[in-house]
């Protein structure tokens, strides 16, 4: 399906008068259904701002963002809440799990907020716990499990309602290399098995190599785009590193031993 998500001439300015910072500067791109898109860029390149705009957490200064036929820049605050609940899932670097709830309950809450019958909720929850391999720690509290497990729980919570788009902001940022790899494989699985559309912001080339397409951001503008196509992941990683070397090598690369 084409035109699944369309970002048209989006701008976001901060500050006023002579101190205006252009965080996002006339950015346009499209995301197809079932795509796994990465956004890369150095610190301050505007990638998180872009993600926040897509996530409806922040408002654009100018431009439009269409999800299908819906222009989210035109929606009221309450309509946006409803939209978030129905169509979006989030995974953040700092997990953002509720500390008073167990792993299972964190996922359950996302379902109960949507409403639904007990049996359906339990089924959906059990399914996603199994899919992400965290069923055995379902009764543990976030502080009792590892970072990787927390992040998988966050993924579970984001995916359990089958959102139109999964937004991930540096999801591997706080994870060790092994957990990162597991998580990225989880993303790939979700992308394939559930046809989840994923938009991931990262400054890590290794993480980005799992994506199908990568947008490179610099000073708020898209300056390059890479498509993986049928290429092997290692080849794709090399391509990413080549692009990064052009930008001055500000971005991080996982040690070669782990590739």
């Amino acid at each position: 399906m084409s035109d699944y998500i369309r970002v048209c001439d989006v701008e976001k300015y901060y500050g006023s008068g002579s101190h205006v910072t252009k965080a996002v500067d006339r950015v346009s791109f499209q995301v197809e259904k079932g795509e796994f898109v990465g956004v890369m860029g150095a610190s301050g390149s505007g990638k998180t701002t872009l993600l926040n705009l897509l996530a409806t957490i922040d408002q654009v200064t100018a431009g439009h963002i269409y999800y299908g036929d819906t222009d989210i820049t035109e929606l009221s605050e309450n309509a946006l809440s409803e939209f978030r609940k129905k169509y979006l899932g989030f995974v953040f670097q700092e997990y953002n799990l509720l500390d008073t709830l167990t792993i299972e309950e964190n996922i359950l809450l996302a379902l109960t907020l949507q409403g639904g019958r007990k049996k359906e909720i339990d089924e959906a929850c059990g399914q996603i716990l199994g899919l992400l391999g965290i069923a055995d720690i379902r009764e543990k509290f976030p502080y009792q499990v590892s970072g990787g497990q927390k992040q998988r729980c966050a993924c579970g919570r984001a995916m359990v309602n089958r959102p139109r788009l999964l937004l991930a902001d540096e999801p591997t940022g706080a994870l060790d290399s092994h957990s990162s790899q597991t998580l990225l494989e989880t993303f790939t699985d979700l992308n394939r098995s559930m046809e989840a559309t994923i938009l991931m912001v990262t400054h890590d080339a290794f993480s980005a190599s799992y994506c199908g397409r990568i947008l490179f951001l610099k000073d708020g503008k898209i300056f390059h785009e890479l498509v993986r196509g049928p290429k092997d992941r290692k080849v794709f990683l090399q391509e990413i590193l080549d692009v990064l070397s052009l930008t001055g090598g500000e971005l991080t690369v996982q040690p070669a031993a782990e590739l």
């Binding site: 309450n78 809440s81 978030r84 609940k85 509720l98 500390d99 809450l109 996302a110």
Partner: peptide, 18 residues
């Protein structure tokens, strides 16, 4: 201290009134 809990709820789609 636990402001983040309500931020998460907002991200999960809870309206401000809710």
């Amino acid at each position: 201290k636990y402001k983040f809990r309500y931020d998460i709820l907002a991200k999960l789609g809870l309206e401000r009134v809710q």
